[in-house]
Design a protein around this nucleic acid. Structure first.
Length: 808
RNA sequence: GCUCGGAUGGUGGAAUGGUAGACACGCAAGACUUAAAAUCUUGUGGCCAUUAUAGGCUGUGCGGGUUCAAGUCCCGCUCCGAGUACCA
């Protein structure tokens, strides 16, 4: 039994006193920047799942230190946002206070796990010295026209009483509180992320060290589709309907046109539409149906024909009916579509329901339009005048060119990605640094007045009126225009929670800079982040936003590289012992403090890394923790088995070098479970050797190496064992042991002998045995002989591994 | 529906196309103990055979295929998970 409490505390204090993990920038060393997604410090504190990713990066960072890198491994807090604010409302305290308490609690919990963070670089997004630069970047965006004011209907959470971005929703509900989202027109600030859509998409190809699944999620989220925008004249000849389609090639099969029910053209055509009352009733009826119902899976499509107006197909001048229908969304494309029921499932369904004409215009070799369902794949055009006979892709090219020539339409790329609704009607966020002047319009707060501090307020409650609580502080709101000194009012919306995390990784590089967002030389040295680790839930949120800001900062010349994060890995969740997500609600939360007290931080670290593949979710099992603890004690027991005089056994020595190689490679690949397994195998081997031969199996030199390769996983006990050898400096300042490829090569190997692919014998032979020698030894083996009953037709020899004899 | 993952003992999992189940948990038997815990030893996919040893068959969700050899590659399914959802 070892006293982990004493040992762990001792080394944590010593490391702190020695400033061991202070970031160094030594000229003769390469840099490595490894980053965790910084946490939101909630009042509940950590459960054992939270530190999993931090343990992994800690192991990685320690390896890199020992391999001679200048390592930047910082930590901070993303502390603006709803949880702190809701806590503040409930307890009537300033969120600042709640945040400070949570941060402290968080740091205490992290500290006992023995992480090598450089706390001198701690970042907090709610610190005015930090958000000064969040505001600065926002102003730059506004200056470049990337931040604009809009009054479009947006997602509104009736319970949080704020507008939200698409990224804040989960299945049509508020990601924070689960309330159903309403569409509400609201004055808001929006960031033009769609201007960067193509770069965000294309540059994913520059990230080979991101997981393919994450890149796919981002590709889907951005949702680029190439097509054409086409104008259909309306029979009154004055107005026209613009539709977006990716299938111009099917336009001769267009039998009607559909508008979204909220389409602005309706109002314009009011007098032309004979059944306008019916149309209005339909639209009113729809607005009663909740968004969720409207979008729900099996809801039947419905619509109303606009009587008295028709649309004219620009390709053949054919007049077709116009409908409004709930299956067309205003928010995508132009809010209007040309319906081709023969070649689009949704149009088909609608056409069947209302008995509309269905005209197939694409022919296929294998599947054919049979009247029973739409066929959506490409084929060869038919019944399409002079385009008949062309392939779908040829036709799309020719037809859109023709449209452009005739000015009837143009090629168009549409994105699923929407501009980023960037204002919140809540208190606890960065104030948007803009001023509304009666004469000059919108004016930015001058740079020298930044940070524009969040003012103290009486009530943190959201107002629900579309104004933030800041609007109630009249002496803050009423100000003078920086340009004309006339009467002006401050913008009272605040920024969303995501704002601060868009660039925090840059602040770590230069945390105290009050003159610029990040110093150029420092940025050039440390940037980009070499390795970024965090939850997969950020794949289409934070990771898209941060890439967008980074590209913007690149365009400004603030950063020197276009992508912020070179390598990315996601951490798999740790589930409760009952298989459910750890949560107060289920009563299955395990607090790391309790585990550390009973088993030690080192055991917790080893256990979490040994549970299974890093990216995969795993179920907590306290019994498994006992195994980790036992393993640490086994390693400690090795400290009795080394001796200065010992000459190393060949096999043990070879295994040691294999283990060094495997542990190093596995850490670099985030395969911690197999790295630990390799250490276990080695330990078991050494103990078995001692029992069998009653000889000390380890030289001092090799014992030293074992401690070193164990150190990243269990830093406290390793440091203790290291110091027990009389070493002067920390083990983490020592050089990672080199393995010797020559020693790894076995002289004697186990040759597998198969007959017809079935294992029949294992032979101990020289590693470089020839095929002929292997064969003659194999056929001499009783159990092999037994199976060689027919003619030998083939011999497969894999040197150093296997011999397969094929008989007939 | 679409996109991306995954399925291996009682459990977590391991396996550059080359001995499936490493390593660990659990379980069983034994040692130590007055006893228990801890620790140590041995065994542990299933079936068959054997006093014992040596051994045999079978086995990685299901059905096919490629190969001397398939958990791994190809084709077709089933189930589970994640993301997205009337995106034209």
């Amino acid at each position: 039994m070892y006293k982990h409490q004493t040992i762990e505390k001792k080394w944590q204090q010593k490391w702190k006193a020695d400033n061991l993990y202070k970031t160094k920038q030594e000229a003769n060393k390469p840099k490595y920047y490894i980053l965790d997604m910084f946490p939101y410090p909630s009042g509940a504190g950590l459960h054992v799942g939270h530190p999993k990713g931090y343990i992994a990066t800690d192991i990685y960072a320690r390896l890199k230190m020992m391999q001679g890198f200048n390592v930047l491994h910082p930590m901070g807090f993303d502390a603006f946002g709803l949880p702190a604010e809701n806590y503040a409302i409930k307890n009537k305290v300033n969120p600042k206070i709640a945040v400070a308490e949570s941060v402290q609690r968080f740091k205490d919990q992290l500290e006992v796990l023995g992480f090598c963070y450089d706390w001198e670089r701690e970042v907090n997004t709610t610190d005015p010295n930090y958000y000064k630069w969040t505001q600065w970047a926002f102003i730059k965006m506004w200056e470049k026209g990337l931040a604009y004011e809009s009054n479009e209907p947006i997602n509104w959470c009736p319970s949080c009483k704020t507008g939200l971005a698409n990224e804040d929703l989960e299945g049509g509900r508020c990601e924070r509180c689960g309330s159903e989202i309403e569409k509400k027109p609201l004055r808001q600030w929006v960031l033009k992320i769609t201007d960067y859509a193509d770069r965000l998409l294309d540059d994913l190809n520059k990230l080979p060290d991101w997981e393919e699944s994450t890149k796919d999620m981002q590709r889907n989220w951005i949702g680029r589709s190439e097509g054409a925008q086409i104008n259909f004249k309306i029979s009154n000849k004055k107005d026209e309907i613009s539709v977006f389609t990716t299938r111009v090639d099917t336009i001769f099969g267009c039998t009607y046109v559909v508008l979204a029910p909220e389409h602005p053209l309706l109002e314009k055509l009011k007098n032309k539409i004979e059944n306008f009352n019916e149309v209005e009733d339909y639209v009113k009826g729809l607005s009663k149906v909740s968004e969720e119902e409207r979008v729900s899976l099996h809801r039947e499509k419905s619509g109303v024909k606009l009587k008295g107006v028709k649309a004219i197909n620009p390709f053949n001048q054919e007049e077709v009916e116009i409908f409004i229908a709930d299956y067309v969304l205003l928010s995508y494309g132009t809010g209007a579509v040309m319906a081709v029921p023969a070649h689009d499932e949704r149009d088909y369904e609608f056409a069947k329901k209302y008995g509309l004409r269905i005209k197939p215009v694409i022919s296929y070799r294998d599947k054919i339009y049979d009247g029973k369902q739409a066929v959506e794949s490409d084929g060869v055009l038919m019944d399409s005048e002079n385009y008949s006979g062309l392939s779908s892709s040829e036709a799309r090219e020719k037809m859109s060119t023709w449209l452009e020539e005739k000015k009837l339409g143009f090629k168009k790329i549409n994105y699923r990605l929407k501009d980023w609704v960037f204002s919140r009607q809540r208190y606890w966020g960065e104030p948007i640094p803009l001023i509304h002047c009666e004469k000059c319009g919108v004016v930015a707060v001058p740079e020298e007045e930044l940070p524009l501090k969040l003012p103290e307020v009486e009530s943190y409650e959201p107002t629900g009126t579309g104004e933030s609580p800041l609007a109630a502080i009249s002496d803050w709101v009423n100000t003078t225009c920086p340009r004309c000194q006339g009467k002006a009012k401050r913008e009272t919306n605040t920024m969303p929670q995501w704002a601060g995390s868009c660039w925090y990784y840059l602040r770590y590089i230069d945390p105290d800079n009050n003159n610029f967002l990040v110093d150029k030389a420092l940025e050039k040295y440390w940037s980009p982040v070499d390795f970024y680790v965090g939850g997969a839930e950020h794949a289409t949120r934070h990771l898209i936003y941060a890439r967008f800001w980074h590209k913007f900062l690149f365009d400004l010349g603030v950063v020197n590289y276009e992508e912020p994060f070179i390598k990315l890995k996601h951490v798999g969740l740790i589930m409760g012992e009952d298989g459910r997500k750890m949560s107060k609600r289920w009563g299955n939360v395990i607090n790391p403090d309790d585990i550390v007290a009973e088993y030690g931080a080192d055991a917790l670290r080893v256990y979490e890394m040994f549970m299974g593949p890093f990216e995969q979710a795993g179920t907590w099992n306290t019994k498994g923790l006992g195994g980790a603890r036992k393993f640490i004690e086994k390693i400690i027991s090795l400290s009795r088995l080394y001796h200065d005089e010992v000459k190393d056994d060949d096999k043990i020595l070879s295994l040691l070098h294999k283990t060094i190689k495997k542990v190093e490679a596995d850490i670099l690949e985030f395969r911690f479970n197999t790295a630990i397994s390799a250490l276990m195998i080695f330990t078991n081997e050494v103990l078995a050797y001692y029992k069998k031969h009653k000889l000390l199996p380890l030289s001092l030199d090799n014992w030293t190496k074992i401690i070193q390769i164990f150190a990243p996983f269990a830093p406290h006990i390793s440091e203790e064992l290291w110091q027990n050898l009389g070493k002067k400096g920390s083990i983490f300042l020592s050089a990672w042991p080199q393995y010797d490829e020559k020693l790894i090569k076995d002289k004697v190997i186990n040759l597998v002998v198969q007959v017809n692919g079935k294992l029949r014998a294992n032979l101990e032979v020289a590693a470089d045995i020839s095929a002929d020698d292997a064969f003659s030894q194999a056929v001499a083996h009783e159990n092999v002989k037994k199976w060689l009953t027919g003619e030998i037709v083939k011999k497969i020899f894999v040197p150093g591994k296997l011999l397969n004899i094929v008989v007939k």
